[in-house]
């Protein structure tokens, strides 16, 4: 199954290459990072999952246009865990929404798996996890996880099997028959992650998924999410306010800054892929966090 998907993606890549041959847009950009030694080791060819070129989003406010995103150039490779971090209004959520086709770009270009975000969405490329769980209260936990599978027309038995498995992976086996409102906030968010993973999306989009939770729950979920990523190596785009969260989870950290929303710095994580929460006490972790903090402060000036 996995292999089949890979072949399919290669096909897209080939298509994309031919398109790019026609339009020479391949000049590497300063902020577009070359594949790091790390990811070069893990994935033989660094295939881009998301490519943004001079992507801008401009809102027409009452008095003057607001540059929510200004000429973003950026690439996310397959299998990467990328965090977008920055103060409020820096456009990190907007960037996420643009990639997921929840918002149009004003100018520039965004390609997801070599397609427009809209086409990628039609092919069900995205598993989106919002800040709130956004579970349907009239569906049981199991039925909530089954929802996206039912939408793509899988058989009922298949839906149920996958949903049960996913719930087990986020540690919610035994809660299938409960309703979302009978669970705690942390459990609800885990259900929503299980729902996002269930139909095997190519990219997992997470918009401050743990922002509304208390710190203890948040730590636990961070750990689970990191292990999940390690197991499955899915592409993850993760928006957060928290430096610790970004450093702990990511392979790359994108620091953004407001007015206009832009990328200040892209930081490659030197941390090993296998981590646990104790890594937060290591000097590497502290150094990386310091680097992010400095980049944030820089962007603020």
């Amino acid at each position: 199954m996995k292999f089949a998907i890979g072949v399919l993606n290669l096909n897209h890549l080939v298509k994309k290459l031919t398109v790019q041959d026609a339009f020479p847009m391949n000049a590497p950009h300063p902020t577009e990072l070359q594949a790091s030694p790390h990811s070069a080791l893990e994935t033989p060819v660094a295939r881009p999952a998301v490519v943004a070129r001079k992507a801008s989003v401009i809102y027409q406010a009452a008095d003057r246009p607001v540059h929510a995103l200004s000429e973003i150039d950026f690439t996310i490779n397959r299998g990467e865990f990328v965090s977008l971090i920055g103060p409020s209004g820096c456009g990190k959520t907007t960037l996420l929404r643009v990639i997921a086709d929840l918002e149009p770009i004003t100018s520039g270009e965004v390609l997801v798996n070599g397609m427009t975000p809209s086409d990628a969405r039609e092919r069900r490329a995205y598993g989106y996890v919002f800040q709130a769980p956004a579970l349907f209260p009239w569906r049981t936990v199991l039925a909530n996880v089954m929802l996206p599978l039912q939408l793509i027309g899988r058989s009922k038995a298949e839906c149920e099997a996958i949903a049960r498995e996913q719930l087990g992976r986020v540690g919610l086996a035994g809660f299938e028959k409960k309703y979302p409102w009978q669970l705690s906030g942390g459990m609800q968010q885990r259900v929503s992650i299980a729902r996002a993973l269930g139909f095997e999306p190519k990219i997992l989009m997470m918009d401050e998924p743990f922002g509304a939770l208390d710190e203890i729950t948040r730590d636990k979920l961070n750990e689970q999410l990191q292990q999940l990523w390690l197991r499955e190596r899915r592409t993850v785009v993760f928006v957060t306010h928290s430096i610790a969260e970004a450093v702990y989870l990511s392979t790359r950290i994108v620091v953004m800054s407001p007015r206009p929303g832009r990328i200040v710095k892209v930081i490659e994580s030197p941390l090993p892929f296998e981590r646990d929460l104790s890594i937060r006490d290591t000097p590497e972790f502290t150094r990386l966090a310091q680097e992010v903090r400095e980049a944030l402060a820089e962007g603020h000036q």
Partner: peptide, 24 residues
């Protein structure tokens, strides 16, 4: 809004959106 965007990100058809989300 979140629920509608969720259905949008699943590329649910209008009919699916109606039956799974809007009508309930």
């Amino acid at each position: 809004k979140l629920e509608r965007e969720l259905m949008h990100s699943y590329a649910a058809s209008p009919r699916q959106q109606l039956l799974a989300l809007r009508l309930p």
